[in-house]
Design a protein around this nucleic acid. Structure first.
Lengths: 235, 235
DNA sequence: CGCTAACATCTGGACTGACCAGATTGGAAG
DNA sequence: CTTCCAATCTGGTCAGTCCAGATGTTAGCG
């Protein structure tokens, strides 16, 4: 009945909502199993995932303890995926880090990009105009464009990081592209960025990308202030 | 007999060494269980961890498939933890990303740091001289110093990232601090960096940190070239 | 009353065997 | 050679059991 993935999505909010503080002992495996109507086997699989993400610590023969503040970045992706609301502070920090990563990535990309990278980015933008009414496709293309820049930076580790951040913010981008006008504006800015990148004009590319990211970032703030802040959890 | 953690450490190298390519089907749970002398329960727990790290994909009723290139950054930490050799390319990329993160972090730290942050860093360096002969303690203090800078940047997301990179390179730092002379040199550089940070002299702090990281980075290359390259896996 | 030692209970770790239903595959029928 | 169907394989899930160390409670002693 309860796929492991689903169980994780139920247990995490439960642990967060109960306000189990750092180093506090959570309910036992057996109790969690009963509470969520799953077998202990399933609970243990779910917990092993949470442990891998450093959200909990399992002490043999003792219990399950909430982790102080050593949770992995992947935990934030999990939160986003299962819909745990993030505090405005965290969202702001995510935007800031994302900006740092992408700015440095485009710097490297200007120096290292190859023809194939430019071609891939070009293909993204060519397809763009045909899917202006499809938020899902747009979010996908946007991800491909931005990660395409990072790919051009020829650093797979940086690519993984940026990719992770896009996974984190997938839902928000889906909202963002709900408005075709915003999609058109994004396309214009992407075109400018691609031109600068192709010409290896580092400073201009950085300036354009920075502006592009700032506008998107502002929109996120708006989303957060516009909708009820909801119950947020410190991450 | 087979702790889950240990099982993971056995299964990962196995899957990598067998050269199971992307989208290729790995041995079944039952076969893995037999091969490693563990129960299917344990194998499933281990696999759920690998799935959370996007190293594999489990398709119900079908099989276990190797992931193309979407593995999480946490996977790299896992590799480092269980001793999977990383290619020189990957190590270089890690060093590059780490540099980007820490440089930007110290910029932010110069603008945002509070007295408590400086105090914490001061405490690190004060303790340093007393443990010059203890590589373990030095590696720990080094981590505390560098993450302390990021903490001063007041961005918990960036902190998690840098922390992750330090987890990745723990072994290397242990080697590095095997030589007390290198420890002393590190201390001198840390002192200079802390001074610049305290005076909020952003450009000087960046310059000093950059130099500091470069010297360490060079040493990593040396380590890699000095010791047999071993069998490396593309990550 | 306070402290300690012994005991009953709880907890995570691990294993076994079984059942389910969809995916896969190999062989029989056309 | 193609089509189709049944045996087999695979991951998903569950119930029950055993183990040994951690925990907490209680009884006894000073």
């Amino acid at each position: 009945m309860a796929e492991t993935h689903v169980l994780v999505a139920e247990i995490v909010p439960f642990l967060l909502s109960r306000g189990y503080g750092p180093n506090e002992r959570a309910p036992s495996e057996r109790e969690l199993a009963e509470r969520f109507g799953a077998s202990r086997t399933q609970v243990r699989e779910a917990l092993s995932v949470l442990e891998a993400l450093r959200l909990i610590e399992r002490r043999p023969k003792s219990g399950i303890y909430m982790t102080t503040e050593s949770a992995s970045i992947e935990a934030l992706r999990l939160y986003a995926e299962i819909g745990v609301p993030l505090s405005g502070d965290i969202v702001g920090e995510i935007v800031e880090v994302r900006r740092i990563q992408e700015i440095e990535a485009i710097r490297l990309a200007c120096r290292r990009h190859r023809q194939e990278n430019v071609d891939a980015l070009r293909a993204c933008l060519d397809e763009w105009t045909y899917v202006l009414e499809e938020p899902g496709r747009l979010a996908e293309l946007d991800r491909r464009f931005h990660t395409g820049i990072v790919r051009a930076a020829q650093n797979s580790v940086l690519l993984r990081l940026v990719d992770l951040f896009y996974r984190m913010t997938e839902r928000r981008r889906l909202f963002y592209f709900g408005d075709p006008e915003r999609a058109r504006q994004s396309l214009r800015e992407h075109e400018e960025i691609l031109t600068a990148l192709t010409e290896r004009d580092e400073e201009r590319a950085v300036r354009l990308l920075d502006k592009h990211l700032s506008s998107a970032g502002r929109y996120w703030d708006y989303l957060l202030n516009g909708s009820p802040p909801a119950q947020t959890h410190p991450a």
